[in-house]
Amino acid sequence: MKHAHQNQCLDRTERNCSEDTAKKLSTIFLKYRKDKDDLLSILQDIQDEFGYLSEEAIHLLSKEIRISENEIYGVATFYAIFRFEKPAEHRITVCMGTACYVNGADKILDEAEQKLGIKTGQTTEDGKISIGHVFCNGCCGHAPVVVVDNEVSGGWTPTKLDKTIDKLKEGSP
């Protein structure tokens, strides 16, 4: 065949997949049969391992259990628990509940957005910090409340957040 296009093809299968990732994935695959029925459990295991479902992971999984990537992605998007973007290293969640709001939570959130140059719900380009908001953490006595990496604390000010962000950026929480 003159046009053995598989030789020159833009090979989609060669997605940048580090050896480490492939190794971790194959350990997960070993736990299951190569079967459609195990799809959800495998997806959960992958998310537990990597924190999210990456394109490479879904691609390798599709090769393993011979379901199309599109179908796997379709199944995964059906469930709210699956994420498809790498979560940030640190997560700042500002409480915008009534008590926190009247105590200046909006200014704190503004400060975070301006300092990091991103909007609520986004992650910084280096993947270090993401900011979000919730509507009450159930500890309104401490308003304004900010949650940094699952640690809830109160009495926040824009200046305090500013310093915290600096520390997070440097690497020490």
Binding site: I58, N70, Y73
Partner: peptide, 20 residues
């Protein structure tokens, strides 16, 4: 036997599309 499209999301947001 291609599977180039699939249902994505659910509920009102359901649509036909491709992975990522």
């Amino acid at each position: 036997g291609i599977g180039a499209i699939a249902f994505l999301n659910r509920g009102h947001k359901t649509r036909v599309g491709t992975a990522f």
